[in-house]
Nucleic acid binder design. Sequence first.
DNA 1: TGTAATTTTGACCAGTTGGTTAAATCAAGT
DNA 2: ACTTGATTTAACCAACTGGTCAAAATTACA
Lengths: 213, 213
Amino acid sequence: MTDQAKEKETRESILRAAREVFVEKGLNGARMQEIANRAGINKALLHYYFNNKETLFDFVFKEAFSQFWPRINEELLRDVPFRSVVKAVVHGYMTMLRERPYLPNFILNELHTNPDRLERLMKEAGFHPEVLIAKIQQEIEHGTCRAFDPREIIINVISLSMFPFAARPLMQRVWFGNDPEQYEQFINRRAETLVQFLDSALFFNAQQNPEGL
Amino acid sequence: MTDQAKEKETRESILRAAREVFVEKGLNGARMQEIANRAGINKALLHYYFNNKETLFDFVFKEAFSQFWPRINEELLRDVPFRSVVKAVVHGYMTMLRERPYLPNFILNELHTNPDRLERLMKEAGFHPEVLIAKIQQEIEHGTCRAFDPREIIINVISLSMFPFAARPLMQRVWFGNDPEQYEQFINRRAETLVQFLDSALFFNAQQNPEGL
DNA sequence: TGTAATTTTGACCAGTTGGTTAAATCAAGT
DNA sequence: ACTTGATTTAACCAACTGGTCAAAATTACA
């Protein structure tokens, strides 16, 4: 194996291990030793790749944080109705979260512990809601969408998508006797019903399906 | 001052300090020394009142956790329509969360770090959704409420109530230039609009207000 | 006032943690 | 084979952390 390939491989295994441990234990609970162990390397080598804990955490957190806001630019550029945007966003969130179920908890966890990091990352992984808000307002004026504060609509969509993942340990126990499989099925069904729920909440003629998508 | 009064006062100041520090830093990030400092006492005295960190954390967490599930028994016993129950629950949540804005984050934080504690607390601070589910199902059959899985309805109500508090640092920065006052106003307005939102989502004749309450 | 019980304190400790260092190993080019 | 540079390791350390303990201060009460 070449040098570069090996380097990259080690780096990846470190990041994978770091993600695991940070997600499980949080920044403060995570131990560099454990990350090294899971990556199958020495602790000194860990510091060789990432100078210190903060650097490593920052890298992992940044990666996760970049996925927090809905990705909608493409949909918005095309002239689809807001209703289809909602559907696309929800489905996008749900598939993303099925792959990264740890993400909401991870982000909410370290959200208020280090405001400076947040400030910095907010600028880097920018979310520009102006276009989206304008579209919502436009549909409200046009009478298609119910008249809620657009910011609340956006927060509601994010809340409904993320919270069930963040509160999974609780929900899984209450509703499904702590059976992971049943909860996954529940989440799978939810991808559909959530769109219906938001449809009823936001749009006037909520019985039939939206045309696009 | 009598012994008992003083003891109680010290104990309360410890708990107040512990709540602060645990909420800010999490279980692992919290330092017994800092808790002692904020309580204005010695670290040894802290261990005199609470044997160890776990005991203290358990106490604080348990107190918070007991408020997680909606309190609805009284409303349900009276024969009010589900629509009014939703309204009452949302308002109950919002006033509770205005007093304890740290609660969602705090609970979601330590949710998946210690499953055993969760298991124990779930039994103590019991939530018995059977009655509520039955009521929802009944209204669905009666044609008043849209046909969603009752469990999803409950999760949605909790999500919409709690998430904006859990994600406050983010939301406050994105929408309100990190001005706490503006966010509080936003939350205050939300108490009303959230009821409307759920009304549209769940019930068929969603324009006018529900009769009860 | 005297005394037993409780509350508070400062000093201390053993274990852990993030991080360092100097030396050893390895890969690749010449 | 030799040099050069990157990678890996074991041993180590200073700082910190939760927790202890014996003694001092305070309080309750006879």
